[in-house]
């Protein structure tokens, strides 16, 4: 089946190519094949496929990647808005008061 892609042009992922040291760790951790190698560095080839999980930023030793990561979850955003916190997944019924 063809890849499922969410909305266009909303993702906050940024790559500072000058800082990239070509370790390719972002390619390893990305679950949506957003990066591809090019001239011993990486490039973003499919930005709209990014789900802002933050794995690449967390594993970029050169600090070349930034992304505002969080839960892509409407219920979590509603919950966060109502309780005045960051968007937060429900974590089920027991942990209602505990934000993630």
């Amino acid at each position: 089946m063809k890849e499922q892609i969410y909305l266009n042009n909303v993702v906050t992922l940024e790559l500072d190519i000058d800082k990239c040291n070509g370790c390719m760790m972002c390619m390893t951790v990305c679950p949506h094949h957003v990066f591809e190698s090019k001239n011993k560095k990486v490039e973003i080839i499919n930005k709209d496929a990014c789900m802002e999980c933050g794995a690449c930023e967390k594993n970029c030793a050169a600090k070349a990647i930034t992304v505002r990561s969080g839960v892509g979850c409407a219920a979590g955003i509603i919950k966060g808005t109502l309780s005045g916190t960051e968007p937060c997944c429900g974590c089920g019924e027991k942990n209602k008061n505990k934000c993630c």
Partner: peptide, 20 residues
Amino acid sequence: TMNFTGASTYTSLSGVKKEM
């Protein structure tokens, strides 16, 4: 259906905020 974004494996926070 909008609430199913949380269970999906490919929606981003920025995207969900925008659609909401």
